[in-house]
């Protein structure tokens, strides 16, 4: 995946079955963000792989004050890339869904 400066990792072991997974997001390289970033730390959240949209979660992070509106796309893309990788791994390992 492209290096967006925003890192998203699994925050739990993926058993390949759960539709809702725990993720952890943090800024690795603030220079890649357009807006000024205040260092808040890592943000842990849950994400439903079947129902949720990464860009909506990114918007909620903006509204919660973690990022500025100008960076909503980069945050959304970072989450989307990680979610795509998780889904791809599940298909590859033959997990249900």
């Amino acid at each position: 995946a492209e290096d967006t400066g925003v890192r998203v990792e699994l925050n739990e072991e993926d058993d390949g079955k759960k539709s809702t997974i725990a993720l952890k997001l943090w800024v690795e390289d603030p220079k890649k963000l357009k807006g000024k970033y205040k260092d808040t730390g890592a943000i842990e959240f849950t994400f439903n792989l079947e129902k949720e949209v990464p860009e909506v979660v990114a918007q909620e992070m903006v509204e919660s004050g973690f990022f500025l509106e100008c960076d909503v796309k980069i945050v959304g893309k970072s989450i989307r890339d990680r979610v795509a990788l998780i889904k791809w791994r599940r298909v590859r390992t033959g997990s249900p869904n």
Partner: peptide
């Protein structure tokens, strides 16, 4: 370690925790 919690109006819970050790690029 210090953690805090932010709940968005849509109901999603964000837990803020320290960034994992050694996971920041040089600034």
């Amino acid at each position: 370690s210090a953690t805090s919690q932010v709940v968005h109006s849509a109901g999603r819970r964000f837990i803020v925790s320290p960034v994992p050790e050694g996971r920041l690029k040089d600034q």
